[in-house]
């Protein structure tokens, strides 16, 4: 069995593809069952509600649409690119799971409305939404990300794991996106510097760009405009960091679930 870095990464991408397919099939299996059961109930009881029939068509339409969502999540992998950066893998998983979660919410709402049980439908919708928020968007992608990191770590160039090089490249690209990420560069600089320095000894392009980056970074850190840069960062931090929405959303959903359950008990 060959264990070259390329083979390890190719194998990891195959596994990642398999994981996403498994997640897709398990979710869409449950969804299709709910949608078909609801449709069967509507046909057998001959419900005369045009609105509900339109909803049924939309709900059934989500089945082929979900395949399109999967293909978007797997676009780069299907084209043959290696996603070395774990954040990319996590991002694609989050996208797929959140979309599947939203589709599941629609399925649960449809199922509840067909069986005329609005309260159960509301409880299911709120529960699935909170699971989508926390489990699908954050917890499962983190687990998959950690697992993939371990799988890809043995692939090394010059003794440095490819995932670590990709992480450094990602941090630099993040800085290109937004200057707030300068804090990450500052915190991880000693680790980044050793990786970039090692590669720069073998690659002229990296060496040239490293020298350019260090020059500008020095200017930003201790130049005449360093104070102003800090002010810009603070200002942008207020504008772009929005984790409080996550807490607020969770509190609202928890209160909604508690209210619904207490109402059902009463």
């Amino acid at each position: 069995m060959s264990t070259s870095p390329s083979d390890i990464l190719v194998g990891a991408m195959r596994l990642y593809k398999l994981i996403l397919w498994a997640l897709y099939i398990s979710h869409m299996g449950v969804y299709s069952y709910m949608a078909l059961l609801g449709t069967h109930h509507m046909i057998s009881t001959r419900i005369h509600n045009i609105g509900l029939w339109v909803v049924t068509i939309i709900v059934l339409g989500f089945i082929p649409f979900s395949y399109f969502v999967l293909m978007v999540a797997l676009e780069d992998v299907n084209k043959g690119y290696i996603l070395c950066d774990v954040s990319d893998l996590k991002g694609n998983t989050t996208f797929l799971l959140v979309m599947l979660g939203i589709i599941m919410v629609c399925g649960a709402a449809f199922y509840g409305s067909v069986y005329n049980n609005a309260r159960i439908a509301i409880i299911m919708v709120t529960l699935i939404l909170i699971i989508t928020f926390d489990v699908y968007a954050i917890i499962i992608p983190s687990i998959i990300g950690r697992f993939m990191y371990r799988r890809m770590r043995p692939a090394r160039i010059l003794g440095i794991p490819c995932v670590d090089i990709a992480h450094v490249a990602r941090n630099l690209i993040l800085l290109h996106h937004n200057i707030i990420n300068l804090d990450i560069i500052k915190e991880e600089w000693s680790h980044m510097d050793s990786i970039i320095g090692t590669i720069a000894q073998y690659d002229g392009d990296v060496k040239k760009n490293m020298a350019r980056f260090l020059r500008v970074l020095e200017d930003v850190r201790s130049g005449p405009l360093s104070g102003e840069v800090e002010l810009v960062k603070k200002r942008l931090g207020r504008q772009y960091r929005s984790s409080h929405y996550f807490i607020l959303g969770n509190i609202i959903f928890l209160l909604a679930i508690a209210y619904e359950y207490i109402y059902t008990l009463g």
Binding site: L172, H176, I199, V206, N209, F213, D219, V220
Partner: peptide
């Protein structure tokens, strides 16, 4: 200055990916 920083970080990131 910020534009230079962003361009330099992008160029370094890209060269690492190419490598």
């Amino acid at each position: 200055l910020l534009r230079n920083l962003r361009e330099a970080s992008k160029a370094l990131g890209k060269s690492l990916i190419k490598f």
